[in-house]
Design a protein around this nucleic acid. Structure first.
Lengths: 206, 206
DNA sequence: ACCTGAACACCGTTCAAGT
DNA sequence: ACCTGAACACCGTTCAAGT
C-alpha cells in the first residue's frame, strides 16, 4: 500500500459519491484494508483531502495560449470551468480551506503570466484576476453545473409557483430566469462581460 | 415549543458554530428538549435548514434604491455581501440546494426591478444579473470573508514559500496577490468591473 | 396531541495489541 | 515497520412506548 494508491482511490470515490458521501471507512473498504491502516499514511481525513486537492491541481493542464491576453484568459477560465464540472468535488475541497494552498496556484500562475505579457501593470494584475477566479468557482458552486432540461423545468416550476403579487418581476421573467441559472453558454456570457470590464480598466490604466 | 422558537435557536447556533458544527442533538440540548421532539416540527434536518434559509431571506431587507440602475445594483450587491459576511452559514445553506427556493428570490426580485426600470430588455436582464449573483456569493464563499491582517500575513507566507522556479509570476507578485484575496475594497473593485461590463452590454443592445 | 428513551446504522479517531 | 480489532464519543433517524 502506498500514499499514491490511497490518493487515487480517494479521487475515484470523490468522483463517484462526492465529498459528502466520502468516508474513511468506505475508502478503507475500497482498498480492502482496515480503516485504521489509512492513518499510517495520512495524519487524518483533512490531511488526506488536502493532498488530493494538490493531486487535482497537478492534473490541471496549464497551457498558456498564444495570442492576446483576452483569448488567453478566456481559454484558461473555460479550461478551469470544464475541470470543475467534470469533478465537482474540487469546488467543495477548495471551499474548506480559506488560505491558499500551493497546488491551487497553477491557475493563478498561468493567469498572472498572461496578464503580465498582456500589459497589465504588476499592481493591477492580481486585482483584475480575482473577479475571474471568483466567477469561475462561484459559477461552478452556485449555478447548476449540469444544466439539463429536467433541471431547467424544475427551476421554471419553482419560479412560476412564486406569488406574483410579491414577486412581479420574477414571475414576469420566469422562463428567461430559469434559462439563465446554468449551462456553459450562460457561463461564457458572464465571462465575456467580466473580460469587457477588465479590458476597459486596462485601457484607462495605460 | 413552536416552529419559530426552533428556527430562531437554529439561526443562533448556525451563527455560533457554522453549518459544519450544527447538530440536531445540540439544537435539542439548546432548547432543553429530547432530540426526537424536533422531528414533530420538522420532517428532518434538511427540511429545518430549508426553513431557516427562508428565514434568512425574510430578514434580507429589500430597499430599491432611487437613482440610476448602476447605483441600485451596486447598493443591492453590497447589502447582500454584508449580509453574507455577517452570517457566513447562509453561503453554505445556499450551496446545498441546486434548485431555486422561494426565499432566495428576494434579491432576484429587487435586482430584476432595477434592471427593468434601468432599461435592460426583458431577455437580457436575467442573463446580466446572473454574473452579479455568482460574484457576490462566490466572493463570500471563496475569498476570506473576514480579511484581517493575520489572514493576509498567512496567505503571504504561503505565497512566498512557493518554489520560484515553477511559479515565477506568483512569487514576483506575492504581496499584491495576498492583498487581493479578500476584503471589502477588493470586492468592490471586482463589482465595478462587472458593472462596467454590463453597462457596455446595455449600451450596445439599445 | 405531544413528547421521549432505547436502539440502529453510521461517523472519525485513540489506544493497545498483534505480525 | 506495518497493520488491526475493540472501543469511545459522536452523528441522524426509526420505533415503540409513555403522558
Amino acid at each position: 500500500l502506498t500514499r499514491d494508491q490511497i490518493l487515487r482511490a480517494t479521487w475515484h470515490l470523490l468522483d463517484r459519491d462526492g465529498l459528502a458521501g466520502f468516508t474513511m471507512r468506505r475508502l478503507a473498504e475500497e482498498l480492502s484494508v482496515a480503516p485504521m491502516t489509512l492513518y499510517g499514511y495520512f495524519e487524518d481525513k483533512d490531511a488526506l483531502l488536502d493532498a488530493v486537492l494538490d493531486l487535482g491541481s497537478e492534473r490541471f493542464d496549464i497551457r498558456i495560449p498564444a495570442g492576446r491576453w483576452r483569448q488567453g484568459l478566456r481559454e484558461l477560465c473555460l479550461q478551469l470551468y470544464d475541470t470543475l464540472c467534470e469533478h465537482p468535488f474540487i469546488v467543495d475541497l477548495r471551499r474548506r480551506r480559506p488560505i491558499v494552498n500551493p497546488g491551487a496556484l497553477r491557475f493563478t500562475e498561468a493567469a498572472m503570466r498572461i496578464l503580465g505579457v498582456g500589459g497589465f501593470p504588476p499592481d493591477l494584475a492580481p486585482r483584475a484576476l480575482r473577479p475571474l477566479f471568483v466567477y469561475v468557482f462561484g459559477y461552478a458552486a452556485f449555478s447548476s453545473a449540469v444544466h439539463d432540461e429536467a433541471g431547467e423545468r424544475a427551476a421554471l416550476a419553482t419560479l412560476l409557483s412564486v406569488p406574483a403579487d410579491r414577486y412581479p418581476a420574477v414571475a414576469a421573467a420566469a422562463p428567461a430566469l430559469a434559462a439563465s441559472l446554468g449551462g456553459r453558454e450562460q457561463f461564457e456570457y458572464g465571462l465575456e462581460r467580466i473580460l469587457d470590464g477588465l479590458q476597459a480598466e486596462r485601457r484607462t490604466r495605460r
